[in-house]
């Protein structure tokens, strides 16, 4: 599977390494070159410096022909726009965006263009379950 990841923060880098180890063709896009150090020395994928909302950068990253697109930069607005470009301009089959703001997440989820992940709600649910005793004890 050919995967493009926008944002090489903790989540982006972790995902990139994981997918890379599983043998997928991974390309990571980030605005700062230092971020790529999170990928480690054994990363086999491609790194592209630039913003994930620029069509030329996305083309350089090989978005044409990508199977999946993951937008996990630290900005909700960038993730939403990058994901929309991936879906509408490049017709990438699977598009996922991380949105911290639950209301934005709800709105974009309802639009149905992309899969959305809201760490705020996921974290809140998990902690709530743990505190109120509904969580699976480990």
């Amino acid at each position: 599977m050919k995967v493009i990841i926008v944002g090489c923060g903790r989540l982006g880098a972790h995902l990139a390494r994981r997918l890379d180890h599983e043998g997928h063709d991974v390309t990571v896009i980030d605005r700062t070159s230092e971020s790529f150090s999170r990928l480690g020395n054994d990363f086999q994928g491609k790194m592209v410096l630039g913003t994930g909302i620029d069509e030329d950068i996305l083309r350089r990253a090989g978005i044409e022909g990508a199977d999946a697109f993951i937008a996990v930069s630290n900005g909700d607005n960038t993730n939403a726009m990058a994901a929309e470009i991936a879906k509408l301009v490049f017709q990438v089959p699977r598009v996922v965006a991380r949105l911290y703001d639950p209301v934005r997440e709800d709105t974009y989820h309802t639009l149905g263009l992309m899969e959305t992940v809201c760490p705020t709600i996921m974290g809140s649910n998990k902690i709530h379950d743990l505190v109120s005793g509904n969580g699976k004890a480990r």
Partner: peptide, 28 residues
């Protein structure tokens, strides 16, 4: 541009605003 897009889309989809105008910084 990503902020402008978010504002216009939220205004339309979440708040039901009929008309939005956006400035575009990158002509692309």
């Amino acid at each position: 541009d990503e902020d402008n897009l978010m504002i216009c889309q939220m205004a339309k989809k979440k708040f039901g605003i009929k008309r939005t105008i956006s400035r575009i910084n990158n002509p692309k």
